[in-house]
Computed example of a mutant assay.
Amino acid sequence: MQRARIFFTGVGGQGTLTATKLVSLTALDEGLPVTSGEIHGMAQRGGVVESTVLVGYMSPKITHGEADLLLGFELLETLRALCYLKPGGVVVSNSQALPPLSVATGKAAYPELEAVRAKAQAAASKALFVPCRTLAEQAGSAQSANTVLLGAACAVGALPFGMEALERSVRKYLKPALAETNLKALALGAGAAQS
């Protein structure tokens, strides 16, 4: 069994918790022992959302330096969460910004993509940045950006199961009206990861 500590970070409205649930349910369907937790999530749009999925561990917590995989649904939150990544861990992140309230109100500056990429590459064995919103729109809905990111993570072998298992979960756990768009989003994310 492949053990994994996965740290999810994004902002409210991006589907971070939906992605967390999808990964947890997929791992369960694959017969893997799963513990999941929400570290602190603000349901309103723009608030920071952090959650965890641990496969093969009893605790739902991930402390600094423990995550095997950091899934960043928002670029600045990826930068902020790098401290959770273990040495040699993997980062899969959205390359497109969704500036938080602190940036919108001028209280904070937003980092450049290349600065975030450089810090992620310094901390990780692999750091992949994917234009999730653009690919989600190509799939048919900007709301599928979360599954674009999951498709990219799966394609580089960062999740403890394969693409077929993830596709089965999309069909099984998402509403039928959303499944086709999200299957396209998975494929586009996987394609971006392999290009």
Rank of each mutant, 00 (worst) to 15 (best):
L32M: 07
L69P: 00
L28I: 12
V91N: 01
L25I: 01
G31S: 05
T105I: 14
T52Q: 12
L17F: 10
V103W: 01
S24G: 15
R80T: 10
V103K: 00
V49I: 08
G72D: 02
A67T: 11
S51W: 01
V55A: 09
M42V: 15
S93H: 01
K86M: 09
L25P: 11
E50P: 03
L82G: 03
Q44G: 05
V49L: 13
T105S: 11
T63A: 15
L98P: 07
S93C: 06
S36V: 10
G65I: 00
H40P: 02
G15S: 08
A97C: 00
L79E: 14
Y57I: 05
L98I: 11
Q44K: 15
L28Q: 12
G72F: 08
S93V: 02
T16E: 05
I62C: 01
D29R: 11
G37N: 12
S59R: 15
G72Q: 12
L69D: 03
P99S: 04
L25V: 02
Y57P: 04
P99M: 03
K86N: 08
T78Y: 04
L28V: 15
Q44A: 08
E66F: 11
F73P: 02
L79N: 13
T20S: 15
L101A: 10
V49R: 09
R45K: 09
R80I: 06
G56Q: 11
E30T: 06
L98H: 09
R45I: 07
T105E: 03
E38D: 12
L76K: 10
H40D: 06
R45M: 11
E50S: 10
V91I: 04
L75M: 14
L70R: 05
G37W: 13
L71F: 12
L70W: 09
A43L: 00
C83F: 07
S59V: 06
L54M: 09
G41L: 10
L79S: 15
V34L: 10
M58F: 00
L17Q: 14
L98C: 06
P87S: 09
G37K: 12
L79C: 10
F73K: 02
R80W: 02
A43I: 03
H64A: 14
G106Y: 07
T20M: 15
A104V: 04
G89P: 03
S95T: 04
A97V: 00
L25G: 13
L32D: 12
V92Y: 07
L70N: 06
T18F: 06
S93Y: 00
E77Q: 07
C83Y: 14
E66S: 04
A19E: 04
M42R: 07
V91H: 05
I62W: 00
L69N: 09
N94W: 01
M58Q: 14
T35W: 06
Q96N: 01
L75F: 00
L25N: 12
V48L: 13
A97F: 02
S102H: 03
T18H: 07
G46D: 03
E74C: 02
T18L: 15
I39V: 15
P100I: 05
A104F: 02
C83K: 14
F73E: 00
D68P: 08
M42S: 08
E66A: 01
A67Y: 13
K21V: 07
G37A: 13
C83E: 03
T78V: 11
T63G: 14
A97P: 05
P60C: 08
G65T: 03
V34H: 14
A104K: 08
Q96D: 09
V90C: 04
G46M: 09
